[in-house]
Computed example of a mutant assay.
Amino acid sequence: MFQEERLRSILAHLKTSKRISIEEICELFDVSRDTARRDLVKLEEDKAIIRTRGGAILPSPKHEIKDYVNRLSMVSEEKRQIGKKAASIIHPGDYIILDTSTTVQACAEQMEDVKCTIITNSINLADILIKNSQTHIQLLGGELHKEHRYLYGSSVIEKLSYYHVDKAFVGCAGISEKGVTVAHEEDGNVMQKMIQQAEQVILLADHTKIGITGYFRCAELNEIDLLITDREPNKEFQDLLDSHGVEIFITSHNEEGEILND
């Protein structure tokens, strides 16, 4: 077998098994340890793998975080369905925190005009909710992140500490065994406080976020009460959520028979 063929086969093995050892390469392809090492060096040079002691793993997927306007243009039907379900569990009299993610914005866009209080640091969400005559909006003041259109900083975190709410709806860049992660530390610091101030924390994340680890961890899995997503995760991930007490609602399923605590 030529090296190019082996390299393709090694990558195919990694996609299913997540890691491969020098010994496995030798056994699978009947090559020497020196040949196996050269194969891994070549794949590392091509940025296709990360070499580990005695083998290799695939690099973590990286997602470019576009600015807010560009992300809004990419809001999918899946995110709209997640937002619709989230909006349906906002009830009259609720005190709610909404973060700055585009999936949470999909929730705000589909909210009924109910008498409730919304606390947010997103100038976009505040503008959207102006149309709801019965909704009281508390916009958190702080430093403006112009590119992503949210307010952040110590003043936002301090003001949040005075509120106690029924539900917090938050988005993420990724959710994995490492926890819930976002792309920017300043955003993550605010989200940490939002999560602390809520009786129920509801994470809105489409299937592309599952298994992804972003830059800054804003929550451990056991801090999330409910995940609303659009596709059923694999059993391993469902077991991970279950072990941390996270309920899951999948919008692609029929709602009949689903259990949702609110």
Rank of each mutant, 00 (worst) to 15 (best):
P61F: 03
K62I: 13
K62C: 14
K62F: 10
H63W: 07
H63P: 03
E64R: 10
E64Y: 12
I65M: 03
I65G: 07
K66P: 04
K66V: 09
K66W: 14
K66Q: 12
Y68A: 11
Y68F: 13
N70H: 15
N70G: 07
N70V: 08
R71F: 07
R71A: 05
L72P: 00
L72K: 02
S73W: 12
S73K: 13
S73R: 12
S73Y: 13
M74D: 04
M74A: 00
V75H: 08
E77T: 02
E77P: 00
E78G: 13
E78M: 07
E78T: 09
E78F: 13
K79D: 08
K79F: 02
K79R: 14
R80E: 14
Q81L: 05
I82Y: 02
I82Q: 12
G83Q: 02
G83I: 03
K84D: 10
K85I: 00
K85M: 09
K85H: 01
A86P: 08
A86D: 02
A87W: 10
A87Q: 05
A87I: 11
S88C: 00
S88E: 02
S88H: 01
I89V: 09
I90H: 01
I90G: 01
H91E: 09
P92I: 14
P92A: 14
P92F: 15
G93L: 06
G93V: 11
D94G: 01
D94F: 06
D94I: 03
D94L: 01
Y95D: 15
I96N: 03
L98R: 03
L98P: 04
L98G: 06
L98M: 10
D99I: 08
D99R: 07
D99T: 11
T100Y: 12
S101C: 10
S101Y: 15
S101M: 11
T102W: 08
T102Q: 10
T103K: 07
T103Y: 01
T103Q: 04
V104P: 02
Q105I: 15
Q105L: 14
Q105R: 15
